[in-house]
């Protein structure tokens, strides 16, 4: 069974929608996958995104959107089953493996991804990326956290505050 080239929402189970990234790249995905986004869900339910229209996403660039949709497509079947209560252990393990690999990315991509997950309100993705960030920064001092995530250089004021903090509580990191 082939997915329709350009879904108009009424021909068959796999209704397609078109999403347009900030750099005007068009992505065509199944409505079920795009609906993992709370932001998009209502628009899609209202019949938006079908045909040649497409839903513009001015906050998400094409590289990030492609990554986001990779997540949505993988997770859509489980989400459609209401969190997949009858999913087999193999299915769950496969999703877990996918998730682990999915967040094995550069910190700059991580930031775009956390922003996209936030803007599109994709709960599972928000949680997944947040977990990755939390794992990266736990047990670290403020300066190490800034370095790990790629913050810009601290202002003299911020640097002074961090130095004072380390002077007082540096032993807590021992």
């Amino acid at each position: 069974m082939a997915a329709p080239e350009s879904g108009d929402g009424n021909n068959g189970a796999a209704r397609m929608v078109t999403l347009i990234s900030s750099d005007n790249t068009r992505f065509e995905v199944e409505a079920a996958a795009a609906s993992l986004s709370q932001t998009l869900q209502l628009t899609i339910l209202d019949g938006g995104g079908g045909g040649g229209d497409g839903i513009p996403l001015p906050n998400v660039d094409s590289a990030t959107l492609s990554k986001v949709l990779e997540y949505c497509i993988k997770h859509a079947p489980a989400a459609a089953n209401g969190g997949a209560p009858n999913a087999t252990a193999v299915d769950r393990a496969e999703l877990e493996r996918f998730d682990n690999e999915f967040v094995n990315i550069d910190q700059s991509v991580l930031y775009s991804l956390i922003m996209a997950a936030h803007n599109l309100e994709i709960e599972g993705l928000q949680s997944l990326v947040a977990k990755k960030v939390a794992d990266m920064i736990k047990g670290k001092s403020p300066m190490e956290i800034r370095r790990t995530l790629g913050f810009p250089d601290p202002t003299p004021e911020e640097q002074a505050e961090m130095n004072a903090h380390m002077l007082e509580y540096g032993w807590a990191y021992e």
Binding site: M1, A2, A3, A13, A14, M16, T25, R26, F27, E28, V29, E30, A32, A33, S62, L65, S66, L69, E70, I73, A76, P77, A80
Partner: peptide, 12 residues
């Protein structure tokens, strides 16, 4: 259904 989802990866 799940196989059709795998086919429709995002296309440029």
């Amino acid at each position: 259904e799940s196989s059709s989802l795998r086919q429709c990866r995002p296309r440029l």
